[in-house]
Every structure is written in C-alpha cells, then in structure tokens.
Design a binder for these strands. Structure first.
Lengths: 198, 198
DNA sequence: AATTTTTTATATAGATCTATAGAATTTCTT
DNA sequence: AAGAAATTCTATAGATCTATATAAAAAATT
C-alpha cells in the first residue's frame, strides 16, 4: 500500500516543516517553542508530535530541505555549462533572490544547524559536503579552462565565494528597498574582477 | 569613593564576561545555562547574579566587548593612513587572527546578538553602526583617491567585504592546520583584484 | 581585633517547555 | 452507513532553568 507522492500526510508534513522554518528563523531554535509551530499550523502543541518525533527532528528536516534546494540549483547551473563568470553571476543572483523567497530555510540552516548534536549531524554534513564539492568542481574546471587566476587555491576561493554569498543575508534584514539585481551585479563584479582601481 | 580602574571587582567581572563568552560560543545562548558560566568561574549558579543582573545582561556585555575590540582595531588602521589595498590586507589578516584568539566573542556577536530584544539592542546597534560607518568612510576615501573602482557603490562594497570577513569563521571551525597568512593574502587578493583570469 | 564591605553559598519559588499516553474526532474505505 | 484509519485534542509527568532572598564566609578597613 504505497502512498501517493502528495498524499494528505505529505502535504501537511511539508506545511509543518515550513512552519518550523518560519518559527525557528524568527525566534531562534531554543527560544522558539513547539507551541509556536503548532499555533502556526492551527493545531495544538501535542499534535505536532504526529509529524515530528522531536523538536530536534523538526530542525533537521528544515535544514535538509534548505540545503537540498541550494544543491539542486547549483547542480542545474553546472549542468548548463556556462562560463565561470556566468556561473558565478547566476549563483549570486539566485542566492539573493532565494533570500527573499526562502529566507527562513537559509537563516535556519545558517544559524541553527549546529544545534543538532555532532553524532546526529551526519545527513546534514553529507549534504553540506556535497554542496562544497560541487562548488569546488566548478572552480576546478574554471581553473583548467584558464578562467580562474592560476595562483589561486581552489579551496580558499570557494570559501571566499561562500562568504560573499552569506553576507547576502544582511541585505534581506535591512530591506531598504534595494534593487537586488544591482547588488548581485556588483557582488559578482567584485568577486570576478576585484574592487581596486588600476 | 571611586573604584580603581582594575579593582578586584573589575577583574572578576571581566573574567565573568569571558566565561560567558566561552559558554555562549560553545553551546549557544539558550542551550547554555547560567550554571555553565558559574561552573567555569568556580562559583555557584546563584552567585553569578552578583555580576550580572540577568543572563541577557551577560550576553549584552559579551557582544559589546566583542564589537568594541573590532572597532578599536579598525580605527587604528584608519589612523595610520595606509593605502586602500594595504588597509584591506591589514583588516583581513587581523580578522583571521582575531578568530583564533578571540573567537568566542566574535562567534557570540555574530550568532547570538539578535537574541537581545530589539528595544534593548540600542547600544549594540550603535556600536555596529559605528563599525560600518568607519568602514564606509574608509571606502569613501579610497573612492575619492581613485583607489576604488569608480562604478562601485560604497555601501554594497562594504557589505561584500564584511561578508568575506565573516566567512573567515569557517576556517576556524575546520582547523585543518591551515596557514592563515596564506588565506589572508588570497582573500585580500580576491577582494582587491578578483578571481577571474584575463 | 573589631567592624564594615565585598563576595560567595544555599535554598527555593515560579515559570516554562518537551514529550507521552490515551481519548476524541475527522476522514477515508468498503 | 458502518467500520477502519488517520489526524487532532486533552491532560499531565517530569525535567530544567532563571532569578531572588537570605545566610555565610572572606577580605578589607579602621
């Protein structure tokens, strides 16, 4: 007796993950209570445990869903086989827009994934590694195509790039009606060509 | 009856702030208990309240001490009047080394400052603004000296730079015996001159 | 040494929060 | 419609944690 792909349960489960993401992002994992998640779903606190074995399991679900999305976009960009600079531009632009539409997941992954005890963090670490491996692959190819400066270490460059991306979060926080396309272009330009005149 | 500058109390108070920083950095603000801080100071949980009005006050103290240090270094670099590129290199190098020596404060400021309710976050916000204003000043001067690419918006560049700096934290986490000078050089190079060949 | 001040200890009130067990209700299936 | 399955509710045990009030001890001052 197999479930359909979007049975009632699965839909509701995803709604629960979404509610958890929203609550954790807003209040932080520990400050948030299971009652906050339940409220958002219009069910009682105890009923939440029909969907999650524990509060921590809810956090793990949010983190996994968040990184899964990022990986699948990165994969698609790489499959399309753009030049290095175009790939960078696409990734920056996408990350900034994702911060508008899926900010909850990104914030939770960023800030709270480490709450999960090391011994239970395996799946998340795996996904995280996959993401970094893919990025390193992208940079390594660029290097072999002479699109990357030859004296740059790939690992360090990847870290610098992810750092740049993470700062994108600060734009979301202060929504000063900023044109994200402008920000994305400038971020990409700086990473690709630097900020220094001459 | 004025206190000396380093009376017994002040020393002990600073030790308490330091213990709080270590505990908050390791466990996270909410997961950490006041008992953990007290243990580290070899006093009982209740005694901690001789130094802090509340757990939240301890967090605020840690954050303020953390940002204060960053500001004073930035200020000193700016006072020395280096070129833009040298200033960037100095700041990157310093931030990476600070992550080794004062990682607790930096981590707590980064991850947990937002736990403090908005209405009580005034002081921290002020310090944060000061830091950003100083950086913007640095970039603005560079721009006027034609050391910064003329088409770059100063605000966005500053954010990109702080993003780069924040990713420095990831090096600390995976201490793979990495030479921080090498990382600092490459981070600076990328920010100043880009990663793209040609 | 006696007295005042500073620092730490003890004990606990009061609040909060997770997770569970079992009952009740709704939805689905036949 | 009756029965089965899925979903939600109720009530609560049990654990934890902050903050306070008061007592004790240690240090400083006279």
């Amino acid at each position: 007796m197999l479930k359909e792909r979007t049975s009632k349960y699965d839909q509701r489960y995803l709604a629960a993950v979404d509610a958890a993401a929203a609550v954790f992002a807003e209040k932080g994992y520990h400050a948030a209570g299971t009652i906050d998640i339940a409220d958002r779903l219009n069910i009682k606190q105890g009923s939440l445990y029909y969907y999650f074995r524990s509060k921590e399991a809810a956090l793990e679900a949010v983190c996994l869903e968040g990184i899964r999305h990022q990986i699948s976009y990165l994969q698609s960009v790489m499959d399309e086989g753009h030049s290095f600079s175009d790939s960078i531009r696409k990734l920056v632009t996408y990350t900034l827009s994702a911060l508008e539409e899926r900010s909850d997941y990104m914030i939770v992954f960023d800030r709270h994934r480490q709450v999960i005890p090391l011994e239970k963090r395996g799946k998340i670490r795996d996904q995280s590694n996959t993401y970094h491996k893919l990025l390193e692959e992208l940079f390594e190819q660029a290097r072999q195509n002479d699109e990357l400066k030859p004296d740059l270490d790939v690992h360090i460059s990847v870290r610098a790039f992810t750092g740049l991306l993470s700062s994108a979060g600060s734009w979301y926080q202060m929504k000063q009606s900023i044109d994200l396309d402008v920000v994305a272009k400038q971020y990409s330009d700086i990473f690709l060509f630097g900020s220094c005149a001459v």
